[in-house]
Design a protein around this nucleic acid. Structure first.
Length: 484
RNA sequence: GGCGAAGUGGCCGAGUGGUCAGGCAGAGGUCUGCAAAACCUUGUACAGCGGUUCGAGUCCGCUCUUCGCCUCCA
């Protein structure tokens, strides 16, 4: 079964083939660290996390690079504008480096809770100034870039095919869309900055052949991607809003410098909307992850994200999150039942489900269908377990293995160690188990004596404490619900 | 204005021509001391109007609406 990936460049699904056998070089645009991560970040990085996980499950060795942007992106692309990190630093009355470090840590905290695996390399833009300068020099030497008054610009006209990713190939048409004419040293207004001269008071600046300044905002990705993955890479991912100008500029500056195709597969994930409107920091409607985690299990968020396709918009609402909470709970219950069930004799064939799951993932990472397969499996397993024959130990192991592989390893929504866990340490869980045995024993005695007032009281008090009791045919089972 | 997406049942959300997505919510039922869970049953959905076709959410055209990008943005 081959993997097909939708390539934004060709706008079709293409059979995925790597540059080098069995190795995937993958670069994903990372966050600009000047604020806490929001749901949009979650969608992006969860989506690409699943891509990486599935590629690895498929046998590839994935070298995954995701940058941390800790400098440079201006609040606008004209010659005016402020560096967002510096702006935040002055707001918080501290220096830019502290801002960058603080929000980098915050970002990883949130991603860890979402079970997003760390990239192999997470290069920071400020740690790669020499590489960026070297790339600019290459472009100046080859005539693709020019220096004016300490600024260096990329000459868009010198690169045939500028705008091929976004479809914005007609630069004249582009001009008409520009709202204000900006005074600039650029030869053409579509030229973009590779290096900017720093003003006196500018806090983040470096020495360069063109004087003291700082890198332009498209440059770091090209420089770092080339450094760690080579001049041509297999996959470059990012948010759709970055297609233009960011990714088109990356293509231009990279391909002009190397003469080689920069990226084989461009992958773009879609936006999170809230009431149909894009969620964004500048729009002040973003849902902060740390706040969200206060009331919602992070894995529910992950599950919610994976219930839609990465190329579709995802509309956030409390009712949608609630539906996901219930849905994920159902899958967790099934996993728990499979683990704890008593051996039966029935044969349960997992293969059709595993095949359909793989088929969905191989079709451009269609996680909504993959999730649907898990739900169908859940129903089939529950039906089989409800049947007097039950499921044989061998079949049970197969099912458990598949749930582990699909639900935990690939999608990362089911907890591999225990479905009650949610991160508590094992020692406490063990003690809790012992306490529960005592309580359940007392409750059973009460039930035997038809003292239902007492047995219900135990059940209700436990529920208040976040522990749910179920009286099944096989006895009493309990589970610690998500405390949300 | 230019470039690009999209409109699916109460809600979320798949589906590139011919049985069925799936989840949540709702209704009825089985089981249970009662719950919960699980299972069973239950929904004339595809923005509108034309067209192609034996057959169209699925292809084509037009109309309406929404959203993204063209300024930092996952």
């Amino acid at each position: 079964m081959s993997l097909f990936i939708y390539n934004s460049l060709s706008r079709t699904k293409e059979k995925f083939e790597t540059l080098h056998p069995e190795i995937v070089s993958m670069y994903v645009c990372g966050p600009t660290v000047y604020g806490h991560a929001h749901l949009g970040h979650a969608k992006s990085y969860v989506s690409f996390d699943v891509v990486v996980r599935w590629l690895r499950q498929s046998g590839y060795r994935v070298k995954y690079v995701q940058n941390i942007t800790d400098v440079g992106h201006l609040t606008d692309d004209a010659d005016e504008g402020e560096d967002k990190i510096i702006k935040q630093a002055s707001l918080e009355k501290t220096d830019p480096m502290e801002i960058a470090q603080f929000y980098t840590r915050s970002f990883y905290e949130d991603m860890d809770r979402l079970e997003v695996l760390r990239a192999n390399i997470a290069p920071a833009a400020t740690a790669h100034i020499p590489e960026q300068i070297a790339l600019i020099e290459r472009l100046v030497t080859s005539g693709h870039a020019y220096e004016v008054n300490g600024n260096v610009y990329f000459a868009v006209k010198s690169f045939h095919g500028y705008g091929k990713l976004s479809g914005r190939t007609d630069q004249n048409a582009l001009q008409s869309g520009i709202r204000a004419v900006v005074r600039s040293d650029k030869r053409e207004s579509s030229d973009f900055a590779l290096w900017k001269k720093a003003d006196e008071g500018h806090l983040m600046k470096w020495n360069s052949p063109w004087g003291i300044g700082y890198p332009g905002w498209h440059l770091e990705c090209s420089a770092m991607s080339m450094k760690y993955l080579g001049e041509s890479i297999d996959i470059h991912g990012g948010g759709m809003e970055n297609k233009f100008p960011h990714h088109d500029c990356e293509i231009a500056q990279s391909e002009a410098a190397t003469g080689k195709p920069y990226v084989r597969f461009w992958m773009h994930n879609n936006m999170v909307t809230i009431n149909g409107i894009k969620m964004g920091k500048s729009l002040k409607n973003s849902v902060n992850l740390k706040e969200l985690f206060g009331e919602t299990d992070p894995l529910v968020i992950r599950f919610f994200i994976l219930q839609s396709h990465y190329r579709s918009q995802l509309d956030y609402s409390e009712t949608a999150i609630k539906a996901s909470t219930t849905g994920l709970e159902k899958l967790r219950e099934t996993q728990k039942r499979v683990r704890e069930q008593k051996p039966g004799t029935g044969i349960f064939d997992i293969k059709p489900f595993a095949d359909r799951f793989a088929e969905a993932m191989n079709d451009d990472f269609n996680t909504p269908i993959a999730v649907a397969v898990l739900f169908e499996l859940s129903k089939a397993i529950n039906t089989a377990l409800d049947h007097p024959e039950g499921i044989s130990t061998d079949s049970r192991k197969e099912a458990e293995k598949f749930l582990e592989s699909a639900g935990s390893n690939t999608l990362g929504i089911l907890n591999p160690e225990n479905s009650n866990g949610h991160g508590e340490n094992r020692e406490n869980l063990k003690k809790l188990g012992e306490v529960m045995l005592i309580l359940l024993e007392l409750r059973n005695e009460a039930r035997k004596n038809k003292d239902f007032a007492l047995s219900d009281r135990i059940r209700n008090r436990l529920l208040d404490a976040g522990i749910e009791i179920k009286d099944t045919k096989e006895g009493v089972s309990w589970s610690a619900k998500s405390r949300y």
